[in-house]
Amino acid sequence: MPTTNTPTTKTLREGSARKRAAILMAARELFLAEGFDRSSVDAVAARAEVSKRTVYDYFGDKQSLLKAVVDAIGESLITTIRQTLDDTLTDRTEAADLEDVLVTFSMRIATGMLDSSEYATLQRLVRAEFGHLPHGCYNAMADTPDEALAERFAAFAAAGLLHVPDPRLAADQFIALTFGVALDRLGSANAVEDARVRPIVVEGVRTFLRAYRTR
């Protein structure tokens, strides 16, 4: 049975950013290569070139270290999503632009984030080590991109471009209709390698707009 012990609650040191990053990278590499159970704190410390005590001082215990690895990858992906939102879905005031900008956003996420090594690493760790992660930690993090997209849809509604009584529901449905379909059907959302992705995204955007575009 997977361990279900909760992470430590002791006061942790912030410490050196360089050492913290080295420990996270070492743990990430070992957890992926050897698995959580077979990766010792001693091995993490040796790979990071720090003392075992430093690992404990910075992260408390091995389970908390795994959570920190998952959180760090997730935060990196969320930063990518927010940047993509800023680049593609900001200050759009023409209804005629909506289809193009929503397709552009979806394709950027599909090819730049969902097929990235960071996303693949996150999925592998969460699937393999789910029993060692605190309950709900990944789900809470996974909600953040949806909330960010919901904020943009609410802004479009305020500008009179969309009718979205529930922006979060609209965001969930948009994701399901676009790159979510590509992932479910094709196992990938990389339009560079698979020409079937873009037509799926375009039709998903059009379906979304038929439901939510202001009449």
Rank of each mutant, 00 (worst) to 15 (best):
T207W: 05
S116I: 01
I200Q: 14
D115V: 12
E129K: 03
Q173P: 00
F153L: 04
E118W: 13
S51T: 15
A46Y: 02
A191F: 13
A45W: 10
D115C: 03
L65D: 01
A48F: 07
I81F: 04
E203D: 10
R53M: 12
A176E: 12
A150M: 02
A48P: 06
A182S: 15
L30W: 04
L125R: 05
T93M: 03
T79E: 11
A176H: 11
A171G: 08
S51H: 04
Y119E: 09
L161C: 11
A189L: 03
R198D: 10
A43W: 04
L32M: 14
P145E: 03
A68H: 01
R47I: 07
Y58W: 02
V126F: 00
R198M: 11
E129Q: 13
E34M: 13
R20V: 05
A150S: 00
D91Q: 09
A155E: 15
P167Q: 08
D146H: 13
L12H: 13
E151L: 04
D42A: 14
D97P: 02
E147M: 08
R82A: 07
D194Y: 07
L98V: 11
A170F: 01
E49K: 15
F174K: 02
M1S: 09
S188Y: 05
F156P: 10
R13G: 01
F36G: 08
T207S: 14
